[in-house]
Nucleic acid binder design. Structure first.
Lengths: 147, 147
DNA sequence: GATTAATCTACTAATTTGATGGACTAAATA
DNA sequence: TATTTAGTCCATCAAATTAGTAGATTAATC
């Protein structure tokens, strides 16, 4: 389940596709429009900034805007920043692999094999969908992407 | 991320494929073999029993065994029992749908559309894989199932 | 009726999640 | 350069969830 943090982040990013370095959007504005506690959103945006997803300007006329083109911002990356690995088990994570403590033979662990499939399917969708892709989506489901 | 509860449940179920009504397996035995706190496992098995996944016998010669054939036990069902809906957002859950509070138009919510894809892909794998299927899996990935 | 083993009730501890308050820093501008 | 604006940093907090424990009870077998 996605945390509120990640969901707020995605909501904010959708809004921020309308921002530019010349006309950034205020935290307060985003918070109000999306019904997100301002202080909470503040921490989220800062986190995204530290990972290069966003940039910001201080002082009058300041605010937030995208740190790179929406084509280069993958949903998977955003969710990992806020919620950690996509994998349902640490032993199938690509970005934060950790061996199961008592798992004697990982290669034949039945549970692991299924969870690996789940992780791959999830990652394929989320890493294969950029912010730009998402903005283009309509009510009709699309065909599965290749990569 | 799968909870320990769900992971323990799956581990126990793998072991329980070896049990029969005539020779059930003890909670204590399962707990020791899998390194699961006994009392914790107790609650998990009871929960699975209440949902028809397991059956049990009390007294000497008692223990747990599968409540239905392993072909009829879907991974998705087990995980839902222990961890709740598979969906990353309540608004894309088939089994526990809940509208987002401030989402004005669900049909065009970009986030929802992507999360719907994730839920569908996850459910396809987990509801399409029975305990029997899982036991058959080897290190080689299989082709995606139809349903 | 003694033993075995699951069941039920009720906690408790630890961790994570969601959120808040206030001081501090950098940029713009009057 | 003083003031205002708006992001940054730090510390803390409450609620919820997750993980685990304790002890009494019930049902089956010998």
């Amino acid at each position: 389940m996605l945390s509120k943090k990640a969901k707020y982040a995605l909501q904010a990013l959708v809004r921020l596709t309308k921002a530019t370095p010349q006309s950034p959007i205020l935290i307060a504005e985003l918070a109000e429009q999306e019904g997100i506690p301002k202080k909470f959103l503040e921490a989220i945006l800062l986190d995204l900034k530290k990972h290069g997803i966003l940039q910001s300007k201080k002082g009058k006329g300041g605010g937030y805007f995208l740190g790179k083109p929406p084509e280069a911002i993958a949903m998977g990356q955003v969710i990992r920043i806020l919620d950690g690995p996509l994998a349902p088990l640490p032993c199938v994570s690509q970005t934060a692999y950790m061996k199961c403590l008592e798992c004697r033979d990982e290669k034949t662990c039945h549970i692991r094999i299924v969870m690996q499939e789940v992780r791959d399917a999830t990652a394929q969708i989320l890493d294969g969908t950029s912010l730009a892709d998402m903005m283009k989506l309509g009510p009709q489901p699309r065909r599965r992407r290749k990569r």
